[in-house]
Design a protein around this nucleic acid. Sequence first.
DNA 1: TACACGGTTGTCACTCAGTGTCAATACGGT
DNA 2: ACCGTATTGACACTGAGTGACAACCGTGTA
Lengths: 200, 200
Amino acid sequence: MEVGDTGSLGLRERTRRAVQTEIGDAAMRLFLERGFEATTMEQIANEVGISRRSLFRYFGTKEDIVLGHLVETGLAVRDALEARPADEGPWEALRAALESLALAPGYSPERTLKISKMLYGTPSLRAGHLEKRLRWQELLVPNIQKRLGAGSGDAPDPRARAIVACALTCLDVAGEIWTRHEGEEDLGRLFDRAVAAVRG
Amino acid sequence: MEVGDTGSLGLRERTRRAVQTEIGDAAMRLFLERGFEATTMEQIANEVGISRRSLFRYFGTKEDIVLGHLVETGLAVRDALEARPADEGPWEALRAALESLALAPGYSPERTLKISKMLYGTPSLRAGHLEKRLRWQELLVPNIQKRLGAGSGDAPDPRARAIVACALTCLDVAGEIWTRHEGEEDLGRLFDRAVAAVRG
DNA sequence: TACACGGTTGTCACTCAGTGTCAATACGGT
DNA sequence: ACCGTATTGACACTGAGTGACAACCGTGTA
């Protein structure tokens, strides 16, 4: 299973990644055209030229096509949080870590806006999005717990959970307003205002 | 279509309510026995003695059987919030309004605990629950907006959204900890601690 | 080069949630 | 008793998701 002479990964893995992104692109195109719910997995499969069954092997659920990348994004946020100085306060560190979201690869404002509108406008996607954010919570809590002074005790600190959860909630509120205002306002500033309103 | 001599509502509406609660009871029993996802709508229908199709006429989705009552609960919270003195601060008013949740009719701690465990343990239910809470948000924001001093301007105040969203998030965190601790701790106290951690 | 192994693919068949339609029926007021 | 209407059950259908299986193709080995 180890690499032989090929540059980075075996051909199998490379084709898999290629197909995965191709599916993602085609699906998002259809979603933005006809809407998420109006697009069937069969249509996506036909578009890419694979069987419906294989499509499900690449993306376990239809939501995963849109929301799947949020898992690795969560890991990136966690890493960014870990990279912040240990003596930084929880809110400052979280704000800085969340800032790394804007630096996503291949970031396109108008595309992001369209996707955001679909996200906020489709109930099942909205729910799935919130649930993925719950996973982020669990990823970020340990670090915040350390910053609150308590040693890495086994007991999960309710304070850390509350802070992380509310920070992500503020991000969500900021994102919703950002979307509603056609992406004209600065997301970081909206986030700061939300936090200020809560902590004021 | 108006009432004639019958006490409160017409017989149609009364039987409908009766069937609705009967379905709810039977379904929750099955859910707690075999789990939410392992219970099919057909099993529930058979249990109650109605057709699958009719079951869907009472509850549009399987989630609604568990989460449906949250809609009216949200209205109750809003009414409780409206009933608070106008000069009370947003957080105090919200806390008091949320307190009314504990006074639900037919409240049984161990049953609530079992339901909560199912809620937090079933992804689709968790997501649906979060989405219902989003509706609460929209219900509560106008009142908080008034308390923040701004007149009933048409522009939705980001501050009000942030405060309401974070208050509900704190409630969720408190609820999760309450569930994890087998319902031993006081929910109100947990909520206060979460808020204190965020606003400290 | 030939072969064996393992992962991938397509096909078929299935379960289950949810929806539309339509005839039969039971209720409500007259 | 009678008429209009809401409710019900039966049937058929779509679409997401899953399991099983044979054919296939990349990968390391003889």
